[in-house]
Simulated assay, not measured.
Amino acid sequence: MKRDWEIIRQVLIVVEEDRFDEYLDNAENQKIVIDNTVLLINANFIDGNILSNLETDEDVHVKCLTWQGHELLDTMMYADKNGDFHLVNYTYSLRVYHEQKTEVLHSKI
């Protein structure tokens, strides 16, 4: 499965706004949304549960963003706003890029 950064950004936004179920219900491809949400849960960006059994596809129960999830969303929104959001950096090493961006943000405060 390939990460979809636009879906990831949208999932982070709707989880922060407590609208994940509505977003998932209206999604064109729920499997892609669920797969990317599973990645976010496994990476500890979202507090939630991965639900699966032999009879059905994977599903998720989303609670809220973790601290790291809020930081990732802030970093993505800041980068989007300033035009320096480059997927190649995120794809190479999410944690390193995130830490670099956080340092830049903290230096401006």
Rank of each mutant, 00 (worst) to 15 (best):
V60F: 00
Y23S: 03
L87D: 08
V38W: 01
V14L: 10
I13K: 09
Q100G: 00
D35K: 12
H70M: 10
N44Q: 15
F20R: 08
Y90C: 12
H98D: 12
D25N: 05
N82H: 09
R95W: 09
T56K: 07
V38Y: 03
W67H: 10
E6D: 10
T37Y: 01
I50C: 03
D35M: 10
K101V: 11
V15S: 15
R9S: 10
N29R: 04
E6W: 02
L39P: 07
H98T: 09
L54D: 04
N82V: 04
N44E: 15
E22V: 08
G48I: 02
K63Y: 11
V60D: 00
L51D: 04
L87A: 07
H98E: 12
E22C: 02
K108C: 14
N82P: 07
I41Q: 10
E71M: 13
K108G: 15
R9C: 06
C64M: 07
F20T: 07
I8Y: 01
T75Q: 10
I109G: 15
N49M: 03
S107T: 13
E16M: 12
N89I: 10
K101W: 07
E28H: 09
D59Y: 02
D74H: 14
Y90I: 13
Q10A: 08
N36L: 05
N42E: 15
E6L: 06
G69L: 07
E28T: 05
V60G: 00
D59L: 00
L65V: 00
T102C: 06
G48S: 06
E55S: 14
L72S: 03
G83K: 04
I41Y: 12
D35T: 11
Q10T: 07
K2E: 01
S52E: 04
D35P: 02
N53D: 08
S52G: 01
M1G: 05
T56F: 09
L87H: 09
Y97Q: 04
R9M: 05
V88H: 14
N44T: 14
N82C: 06
H98F: 14
L51H: 06
D18G: 13
L39A: 06
C64T: 07
T37R: 01
K63I: 07
I34Y: 03
Q30P: 00
D74A: 13
V38C: 01
N36W: 01
L12I: 07
D84H: 11
S107P: 08
L24A: 01
D59T: 02
Q30W: 04
E6F: 03
F85C: 02
V96S: 14
L40V: 05
E16F: 11
Y90E: 15
G83E: 11
T75K: 12
H86I: 14
D25K: 08
R19G: 09
I109W: 12
L72C: 09
M1Q: 00
V88I: 14
K81A: 02
I13M: 13
E16Y: 11
I7C: 06
G48C: 00
E17C: 03
S107H: 14
L73T: 11
N44C: 15
D18C: 11
E17F: 03
